Amino acid sequence: MGRPIKILIVEDEMVIAANISLQLTTLGYEVTGIVPRGEEAILQIKQNQPDIVLLDICLKGDIDGIETAQIMQNDYDIPIIYLTANADEDNFNRAKTTNPYAFISKPFKKLDLQRAIELTALKVQTDTHFKDEKLSPFILSDCIFVRHHEKMVKVDIKDILYIEAERNYCRIYSKGKEYLLVITLKDIDEKLPNQHFIRVHRSFIVNLSQIDEVATSHIVIAKKAIPLSKTLKEELLKRLQTI
Rank of each mutant, 00 (worst) to 15 (best):
G2A: 12
R3F: 11
K6W: 03
A17S: 02
A18T: 05
A18Y: 02
N19F: 00
I20A: 02
S21L: 00
T25N: 09
T26K: 11
L27V: 00
Y29A: 01
E30D: 12
T32Y: 00
V35P: 05
P36W: 07
I42C: 07
K46C: 10
Q47M: 04
D51H: 06
V53N: 03
L54A: 12
I57S: 06
L59I: 00
G61H: 10
D64M: 02
E67S: 10
T68E: 04
T68D: 04
A69W: 08
M72C: 14
N74H: 11
A85C: 05
N86P: 01
A87N: 11
E89H: 08
D90T: 15
A95H: 10
Y101D: 02
F103I: 04
I104N: 07
F108I: 00
L111Q: 15
L111C: 04
Q114S: 13
R115F: 14
E118W: 04
L119I: 13
T126V: 11
T126I: 14
D127G: 07
K131A: 13
K134N: 15
L135I: 15
F138N: 14
F138E: 14
L140W: 00
L140D: 03
D142W: 04
C143E: 14
I144H: 02
V146M: 13
H148N: 12
H148A: 09
H149F: 07
H149N: 13
I160T: 07
I160V: 14
I163P: 02
A165V: 06
E166A: 12
E166F: 10
R167V: 08
Y169K: 10
Y169Q: 09
I172G: 06
I172D: 02
K175Q: 15
E178F: 06
Y179S: 12
L180Y: 04
T184C: 04
L185G: 01
D187R: 15
D189T: 14
D189F: 14
H196Q: 10
F197S: 03
R199L: 12
H201C: 09
V206W: 13
I211G: 13
D212F: 06
E213A: 10
E213N: 08
V214Y: 07
V214Q: 14
A215N: 15
T216H: 12
H218G: 02
I219F: 03
K224N: 12
K230L: 10
K230Q: 14
T231E: 13
T231W: 03
E235K: 11
L236M: 06
L237N: 07
